[in-house]
Amino acid sequence: MLVELEKVAKFPWSPWLAQIRTPFGRTAVRWCGEQDAEPGEYHVEWTVDEDIVWGWNAKPAADSGPGVRPGGHCVVLRGRLNATEDGAAVLDLDGSLILLDLGDPLPEDVANTWVELFIEREKISLYPCEL
């Protein structure tokens, strides 16, 4: 996914965080690239290091369409969610696929619906990549 990196900063209680902007929202997430990265456009891969549990950190979205926004201590991602054959799940965030581990199986009626994930800011990461 192409994002605009606005700045990278570190606070004493957190990992390196990037303030990013996408066509559908902006937020701050853990940055796994160069700490002195210049502002600009970067292709990134998203990773989530938290198990997804329906009803706890995954809920039906009130709106359709992709989204990313801050949610207090969390990052809120809105996309289409699907289970995989091996018991994991994939969130389609505007064509960027994010592999997710599930704490419990998803309800059957969730397949390909718009959902919001509420992920602790330190447990969602961006890795710059070359295309």
Rank of each mutant, 00 (worst) to 15 (best):
E45Q: 11
E34K: 12
Q35R: 15
A62S: 12
V75L: 03
V68Q: 02
W46D: 00
G95N: 10
T27A: 13
H43D: 15
G95D: 10
P60C: 04
E38S: 15
W31C: 06
L77T: 02
W46G: 01
G65N: 09
E50N: 07
W31P: 05
E38G: 08
A83N: 05
G25S: 06
I52H: 01
P66S: 12
R30C: 13
R30M: 10
A58Y: 01
F24N: 08
A37K: 11
G65P: 07
W31L: 05
G65V: 05
Y42N: 05
D51R: 13
L93G: 03
G71T: 09
T84F: 01
E85D: 08
E41F: 15
G79H: 04
W54E: 01
E45P: 00
W54I: 07
P60H: 11
V29N: 01
V44H: 06
A89W: 04
R30H: 09
G79F: 02
R69H: 02
P39M: 13
V76P: 00
C74L: 13
T47G: 10
D51F: 09
T47D: 13
V29L: 15
V53T: 12
W54P: 00
D49Y: 13
V44Q: 06
F24A: 08
T47W: 02
G79D: 03
Y42M: 06
A88N: 10
F24V: 10
V75S: 01
P39V: 14
L93Q: 02
C32V: 04
E45S: 13
E45L: 14
G71Y: 11
S64V: 09
G55P: 03
G71E: 12
T22D: 04
L97I: 04
A89H: 01
T27C: 10
H73N: 10
D36V: 08
T27S: 13
A58Q: 01
A61L: 09
L97R: 13
E45V: 14
Y42I: 06
R30T: 15
D94A: 15
T27N: 01
V68W: 03
N57M: 10
N57H: 04
T22V: 07
D51Q: 12
V29G: 00
A61R: 08
A88S: 11
W46P: 00
V68D: 00
A58D: 02
I52A: 09
T47N: 10
T27D: 01
T47S: 15
V76R: 07
A62F: 12
D86V: 06
C32R: 11
G55E: 09
E50R: 14
V76Q: 08
Y42A: 04
N57T: 06
A88L: 03
W31A: 06
D49F: 13
N57C: 09
R69A: 12
D63M: 08
D94E: 14
A88W: 00
E85M: 04
A88Q: 07
P39I: 14
C74P: 00
V53W: 03
H43P: 09
T27Y: 02
A61E: 03
R78I: 04
H43K: 15
V48W: 14
P66F: 01
V44E: 02
R80Y: 00
A83P: 05
V44L: 11
E41H: 13
D36T: 14
P39T: 13
W46N: 00
A88E: 06
A62L: 14
G95R: 07
V44M: 09
W54H: 06
E34Y: 02
R26L: 05
G95L: 11
L81Y: 02
T27I: 07
K59N: 06
A37W: 11
